[in-house]
Design a protein around this nucleic acid. Structure first.
Lengths: 227, 227
DNA sequence: TGAGGCTAGATTGTCAACATTATTGCCGTA
DNA sequence: TACGGCAATAATGTTGACAATCTAGCCTCA
């Protein structure tokens, strides 16, 4: 509390989305957190946010509640909200859960994929390969996210998709850090291509194994970041 | 909308918890849904609930939002909330996710379990066996829930625990129905004992397989309920 | 000088009134 | 009689003000 500054009241007087609706505020705050503008541990005072985004305190309040159960924000009774600081241990836990759930999605996707979708997935794989060759980390990261999203979609497992979406939101920071490790994209790419291959081959069990192998590699990378 | 009655305004004039705080209302509404007092599809009108539980509309509103992202209640913009009716297909989806996540917990538990905890788990197993022999479905159902909870706890995987807790809340109705199927408890018991054995034997992979086998059996039972 | 209590400020929690939106039943018209 | 618009009603969404709660700094007293 003593070291965490409050959100600055000035800087951008007009709201980002133009409107003052709670939906706009939700997106605005979430983006501010995800882009790192509001760092981990940052206090989120309702009145300040209200002034900054030009929305009523009620809207801000509702948004904070929503973010709280997305796991992006922590709330304590009568003590307000702050940006949740996800520890490395938690990041590993999250990745472990992702490992098994993404494995399920991969298996389901392998069972249901159409030829058309397979073509699309392979195209995504090629694009990722190109991005790694070009050393374009941002683009690779974006394609990576798109691939995982597409697999979830193809799997038709909306429950699993919901769980994963929620977990992803909590983990973006660590996720992003990983991709900055030298040599990491190269390893990651191979694993992704393996997942794509197995799904397109309509081999559920192999696809699940490939997905789990990939996440296991992510976990290892995270764990080795513990000094 | 035409066939779903509103929640009756009378019946229990005084609030259940004594207070009018949002926390009490949340618990009260949740319990009313879980006990089946508010059936699936039941409309939840804020003003009515407010009158019934003696809380302000704001508190009820907050509670409904919370329940909505627990997945127990459905909300549509400007059209209010209603008790979510989980279809059989969704119940199967939920069980599939549970399958892999409980598998993870079982594996983790097998890695971390202490001798003391092993003793406790085996005792739970004996109690379940006794309950099945006695034909006490309610007690078996309760022990069942406690076993799964204890395994989650031993696993130390709080992220997975959170995911499972959330999924369980959506599925209690189907879960309960299953245990009423003749012969089902007997099958279920054997699977549970197998999970306990493998965890106590500190065999992570075998424990995961046992947990998945159990949930797969649940899924089959659910699927066969589709006429 | 240190501990305990106390007051002032800041922040969240709650509430009731108002605005907005969707539904329903009715009426006029072809 | 069937259809399309329209007004009345019911419910939710929003806002601003008030009450309860927590934190921090100060002051007293042993």
């Amino acid at each position: 509390m003593t070291t965490t500054p409050r959100v600055p009241a000035e800087g951008r007087p007009a709201p980002l989305t133009g409107g003052a609706g709670s939906d706009g505020v939700l997106g605005a705050i979430r983006e501010a957190i995800l882009t790192g503008e509001f760092g981990p541990g940052q206090r989120l005072v309702e009145a300040d946010l209200s002034a900054r985004f030009g929305a009523s305190r009620g809207s801000v309040r509702a948004a904070l509640f929503e973010l709280a159960n997305e796991g992006v924000v922590e709330r304590v009774q009568n003590r307000g909200a702050r940006v949740r600081a996800v520890t490395l241990e938690e990041a590993i836990e999250i990745s472990e859960v992702r490992m098994v759930v993404e494995g399920l999605c991969a298996a389901k996707a392998a069972e249901r994929i159409t030829d058309e979708q397979a073509t699309e997935l392979r195209a995504l794989g090629s694009a990722m390969r190109a991005a790694v060759s070009a050393g374009d980390v941002m683009r690779y990261s974006e394609l990576n996210q798109r691939l995982h999203g597409r697999i979830r979609q193809i799997s038709g497992q909306s429950t699993a998709a919901g769980v994963l979406e929620r977990l992803r939101a909590q983990n973006v920071r660590h996720q992003f850090r990983l991709s900055l490790i030298p040599g990491r994209p190269h390893v990651s790419l191979a694993e992704h291509l393996a997942i794509i291959d197995e799904i397109c081959a309509r081999a559920p069990e192999a696809a699940e194994r490939a997905a789990r192998r990939h996440l296991l590699s992510v976990i290892d990378a995270l764990a080795s970041a513990v000094h």
